[in-house]
């Protein structure tokens, strides 16, 4: 499945969750969604999206929070997967965009590319309450509604094809203005 198709499935089923995006997912989500509870974490510290989103989830326990993280980002801050699992927040879902490459820098291989390392197994080992994998668009379409209703901490792995042609990532405007708007939306709902 392509990243665009995968995120359209999420957008079609998204209700009022906070959605935090970084890197490739942010680039695509900007094209797919325009919602006051979207937080495009751009510019970011690579691998920090999961931690940022977890902080929002802890601060706002009545609000469901989804973070879209690339596999490269997750590997760069793998301890955050443990922190999220052990924090045991039922309102927290991490969706890993597993494309096997560093897409935003042009598609270089990850240390895990071609290896037997399995991110879903890692998530299970760290005690995520639910772990779900989808390796085709059809399966994701069929299972997304149910998966998104699973209590957290939930880890969803989406196997997507890398995109080598359209990887440039630009901030969608001044961060301070976007954060002010996001905080206002978060406080008002």
């Amino acid at each position: 499945m392509t990243l665009g198709d995968a995120l359209q499935v999420l957008a079609d089923r998204r209700r009022d969750q906070v959605v935090v995006t970084t890197m490739s997912a942010a680039r695509q989500w900007m094209r797919t969604s325009d919602h006051p509870l979207d937080l495009h974490f751009v510019p970011s510290t690579m691998g920090g999206g999961l931690s940022l989103a977890l902080g929002i989830a802890i601060a706002r326990p009545q609000r469901d929070v989804i973070v879209l993280s690339g596999d490269g980002c997750l590997l760069m801050n793998l301890g955050s997967l443990v922190t999220a699992a052990v924090s045991n927040r039922p309102n927290f879902t991490v969706i890993v965009i597993d494309n096997g490459v560093y897409e935003t820098t042009g598609g270089q291989k990850l240390v895990t590319t071609g290896s037997p390392v399995d991110l879903a197994d890692m998530a299970r080992a760290t005690s995520f309450a639910n772990v779900t994998e989808f390796d085709s668009l059809a399966a994701w379409k069929d299972g997304a509604e149910t998966a998104l209703q699973q209590p957290g901490p939930h880890c969803i792995i989406l196997k997507v094809a890398p995109n080598y042609d359209d990887y440039a990532l630009n901030p969608p405007g001044p961060m301070s203005e976007r954060l002010d708007a996001f905080r206002a939306a978060l406080a008002s709902r």
Binding site: G48, L52, A57, I58, A59, F182, R183
Partner: peptide
Amino acid sequence: PLAAGLYLG
């Protein structure tokens, strides 16, 4: 970033 998320929340 975790503290930043808490602050945003």
